[in-house]
Design a protein around this nucleic acid. Structure first.
Lengths: 110, 110
DNA sequence: TATAAGCGCAATGATCTGGTTGCGCAACTA
DNA sequence: TAGTTGCGCAACCAGATCATTGCGCTTATA
């Protein structure tokens, strides 16, 4: 079945998020990754397939080994989606800032 | 079945992401939300249940209507996870910046 | 008070998901 | 060349997801 891959669906799985974190530090092979989890290499391979399909990760051949490395640019897409929301919480933070400043002022005037 | 709710799993669904975007602008009732999608009110209600369980959304009663509003603070948790990755792409951007500066310098020296 | 409107919940069903096992193939190694 | 080692792929299976439908409860309206 040709399932459409999607970044948000990809990072929904905790194991895949962990893989992304590990790979962010250094490109790794499926076997090396599997050692960090309580699952088989094949399971990790399936996760890597999902991550590769949505281009969050890129395989790099080296003999019979395959080093998977992070495609950091793709991660930015998540950030892009978050952008408008970020504005909201920054605004709220600013409002809180104002409240705190007002309280402090009132305290000084006592 | 008591499924553990998780923010990343919550935003994996495109309809739920759309709900978050709509609600960010203004608190809305399930019926009002359902009008924006090609699904039933019950389906929207189920999505709202998921979003409420992981506290991305909060119900506000008003007579027989329920206005759901965004819990912006929870959205920030996604941003927090993204934080270390952001460093990476900012670094890469800085490196690109350096490259561009160098190129410009060389051009000026011609 | 009778009727309609707004919801949530439960049951059902099709489709996805994530894990396992068993291959087979290519690439190192003795 | 014979035997490992590292991988991906296919088949299979239990459990999760998402949408639909049918209810029943509460609140507004005539």
């Amino acid at each position: 079945m040709e399932t459409r891959r999607d970044i948000f669906q990809a990072i929904a799985d905790p194991t895949r998020r962990a893989i992304l974190v590990l790979i962010a530090l250094q490109a790794m092979t499926p076997n090396a990754l599997a050692e960090h989890f309580h699952t088989s290499r094949q399971a990790v391979s399936k996760h890597l397939k999902v991550l590769t399909e949505c281009e969050l990760v890129k395989p790099e051949l080296s003999g019979r080994e395959i080093y998977y490395q992070l495609e950091i640019g793709k991660m930015k897409e998540i950030d892009t989606w978050l952008e408008p929301f970020r504005k909201l919480w920054e605004d709220r933070f600013n409002q809180l800032d104002i409240v705190l400043a007002t309280l402090k002022k009132q305290q000084n005037e006592k």
